[in-house]
Nucleic acid binder design. Structure first.
Lengths: 214, 214
DNA sequence: TTTTGTGAATTGCTTCACAGCA
DNA sequence: TGCTGTGAAGCAATTCACAAAA
């Protein structure tokens, strides 16, 4: 019963934002939201919200709006976060350790369960703030991926190592890579990569005012 | 001599990626790149590359391509990273400390020069790996922003504090905020925000295969 | 030749506007 | 009345294709 994948990529991105906002609504006593209210909260038109959600099914109730808890469940199912999934991390540097001890992933349906690094001084050490995750060599990835049924990996390694590490992850069976190295990563079909480049974000902000001031 | 700002936002985003790739080319002996070569490296069409660059001026040489070092200088000037700019950080938690000790910003034209946090136990302490940055209370922001001429700030605080902290940053004079809290931030006109939500990125990856497998 | 810069054609996303349901 | 879902219209971004330059 999968929808025809004519779904615009921007619509999928916004789906996560809808979910994020809906989750802030749940603790309140509000039972329903209209497309207009959702749009106002995210700076989008009401039509945009309705069209986005309609790509994935009929979730709304005419004259009423969208029921908050119902929509949360539906969106989580679509994103695949209705069940918790295990995630691994490669690269236990400063950023890697920060990500490992970040507990915000849990409530979003992601659980960091393993950490890898090839620095001999790190292998075997426990990562603080993680109830017992120990650093393993990347050679152990295939085993861990298989036994935990892992599909997602976070990569926080230097740019020079990134492509090689990504290749190892893919061979091990990882299907989605969140990449923090400032390089384009090439992967086989069926695997996806999402790159977060901090310098690129700063450059975008920098551009905003360098345009007007000069 | 500013270009008419009919420039598509996606073109500006890609400009950073062009720069990133050009910088990897500079150490090699290659003097020029064609739009096709640049496009191949980034999975874009040659026409896309030419059109993007043409929004900002005429940088190419027909029959030759783009001269690498020339284009690097031009793009940096456009992005405002031809001069190093000082950046502040608010929120000295695990992520904040990781960002402070990340030296990759330097070569991109950004220098982290100050750190703020309102936890009394952190104020006054030095942040390791940062040649001497000491944590200050956020009340000190206006002074620091003024004396350093700071325009950019990174915000690594809990979601619950994010909007209030952002307001303080804007009052202090910050013009661009890189936000790591998973909430939408509202700011005055003339200020821009770029949000990096790690959970959202994982959800996007998760969506890729939850679509096909079910 | 090779390769840029750019109008024209095309694709794709967003907004409009309204029928239909509660 | 209030609100959704959706075809049609409108707009923005990408690709095409070619004249001009080296």
């Amino acid at each position: 019963m999968s929808k025809p994948d004519n779904i615009p990529a921007p619509a999928v991105r916004r789906l996560s934002l809808y979910l994020r906002h809906l989750e802030t609504l749940q603790p309140t006593d509000r039972q329903t939201v209209s497309s207009r209210q959702l749009g106002d909260a995210l700076n989008l038109s009401d039509a945009q919200v309705r069209k986005d959600l309609a790509y994935f099914g009929q979730f709304g109730h005419p004259g009423v709006g969208y029921r908050v808890t119902e929509l949360i469940h539906r969106v989580r199912r679509i994103l695949g976060t209705d069940r918790t999934s295990d995630v691994l991390l490669v690269g236990v540097g400063n950023l890697g350790r920060a990500l490992l001890s970040f507990h915000g992933f849990r409530e979003k349906g992601f659980r960091l369960v393993a950490a890898f690094d090839n620095d001999p001084r790190k292998i075997g050490t426990a990562v603080s703030g993680t109830d017992g995750i120990r650093v393993q060599p990347t050679a152990a990835m295939p085993d861990v991926v298989h036994t935990h049924g892992i599909r997602l990996g976070i990569m926080a390694v230097p740019a020079t190592a990134a492509q090689a590490v990504a290749d190892e992850m893919v061979v091990a069976g990882v299907k989605g890579i969140l990449n923090f190295a400032p390089v384009r990563i090439n992967v086989a079909r069926g695997v996806s990569v999402s790159t977060v480049d901090l310098a690129v974000h700063l450059e975008q902000l920098s551009f905003q005012f360098s345009g007007c001031t000069t």
